[in-house]
Simulated scan of single mutants.
Amino acid sequence: MTKLVLISRDYDMAHLAPMIRRAAPELDVTMHGSHDALDAEVAVCWNPPVGAVAALPRVRLIHSIAAGVDNILADPRLPDVPLCRVVDPQHARGMSEFVMWGALHFHRQLDQVMANQRDRVWLRYDQRAPATRTIGVMGLGEIGTRVGLDLHRAGFAVRGWSKRPKDLPGIDTFSGADALPAFLQGTDILVCLLPLTDETRGLLDARLFAMMQPGAKLIHVGRGEHLVPGDLLDALRRKQIGGAIVDVFPNEPLAADDPLWDAPDLIVTPHMASVASPETIGLQVALNVRRLVGGEPLHHRVDIARGY
């Protein structure tokens, strides 16, 4: 019987155990720290403690419970075994819903309306056509493409930026570092949906904010480590960034004394933009373990060099 261990530093993963067992009753699922965990051949992880996976002498597969794996790759002692991720077919839809809400929040000036309510100010703003508002999507993978096309269908002017050239209907596309300034300067609302790589780590910093139009908005739903929090805080205070919605942070959960909680014109959300269902996680982990046991190619295997 193949044993799996659920490992996380700060997330209770116990609810995933019955989902995995339901999908593959032959698997033995245990929790990190239990007496039999060291026998595990599969480590199912989210933000595992450094060295926790390396401490498993029989481990043959590491499996994330989400699309992102940067929290796992951050462990310098990670064993040289396959790493897989969960790809929820509904993940792109959920992300698109969240970004559409954020875009409409800024487009319809609801950020200003909410501020006016606190000050008991009754002020009705003129409505602008979506085509007069340019939304820039950084990252044109499967999810970024879905988000960009949905925004285009809603009538917004959409542009996209990616590492390599892309051709998307109705979307102005930019690619490569040299095109980043022109992409940013024409963007009213910036959406970050990039993967985390050495090139994108810390990309949302003072230098990038300075390239944006003064008062432009930010919706950050990529990876936490894209963001330099102190630079965003400074840009908000100086009104270089006119408002932001941030769903992912370098350190999660956000500490109670973190100054971002009280930052002007910032909405903090708890990494909720789009989350795979427990049923999907259980099914994909179970099926991949079966493929591992059967010597078959694994689904959604991560290219360690690329980080996704």
Rank of each mutant, 00 (worst) to 15 (best):
Q240A: 04
Q240V: 04
E225Q: 14
L218I: 12
V228I: 14
D231G: 09
P264I: 02
G282H: 13
D262H: 09
T280H: 11
D247T: 04
L218Q: 05
S277P: 08
L208T: 07
F209P: 01
A235V: 00
V228M: 13
V248G: 00
P278G: 07
G242Q: 03
L298I: 12
L254C: 07
R238N: 09
G224H: 06
Q284D: 05
E199I: 08
L204C: 15
K239T: 02
D231R: 03
V221F: 14
A235Y: 00
M211D: 12
R237C: 02
N288T: 12
R291Q: 15
P259N: 12
R238T: 12
P259V: 08
L298V: 14
A256I: 11
A235H: 02
P250D: 02
V289E: 07
L283T: 13
L283N: 11
M211W: 13
L204Q: 09
A210Y: 02
G222K: 05
G230Y: 00
G222M: 06
D257C: 03
L260M: 14
I245L: 12
G294I: 08
A263P: 08
D265K: 10
V268F: 01
R290I: 07
G202C: 09
G222E: 04
D257V: 06
V228K: 10
I281G: 03
E225W: 03
A273T: 08
A216V: 10
V289M: 10
M211Y: 05
L232D: 00
R291M: 10
D234K: 11
A286Y: 04
V285M: 07
A244K: 05
V275Y: 08
A263W: 03
V289G: 06
V268K: 01
A276E: 13
K217D: 14
L287A: 14
A273Y: 04
Q213N: 12
R201G: 03
L233W: 02
G202P: 05
G295P: 14
L287Y: 13
R201N: 08
Q213Y: 09
P229N: 05
P250R: 03
L204R: 07
L204P: 08
L287R: 15
A276M: 06
P253A: 08
A235D: 01
A255F: 00
A235F: 00
R290H: 11
T269L: 11
T200P: 03
L236N: 00
P250Q: 06
L236A: 00
L204F: 04
V275D: 06
D231Y: 03
N251K: 13
P278V: 12
G242S: 06
V228E: 07
D234T: 11
H271E: 12
R223K: 10
G295N: 11
T280I: 15
D257P: 02
P214C: 10
T269F: 11
M211V: 04
H226N: 06
V275P: 07
S274Y: 05
E199K: 15
M212S: 06
Q240C: 03
L283R: 15
T280A: 15
P250L: 01
I245V: 12
V293F: 05
L204A: 15
D258E: 06
V275N: 08
A273H: 05
L227T: 09
Q240G: 02
A286D: 05
D231I: 01
R291C: 10
P259D: 06
M211R: 14
V293G: 01
A206H: 12
V275R: 10
A210S: 09
G224F: 04
R207T: 13
D231V: 01
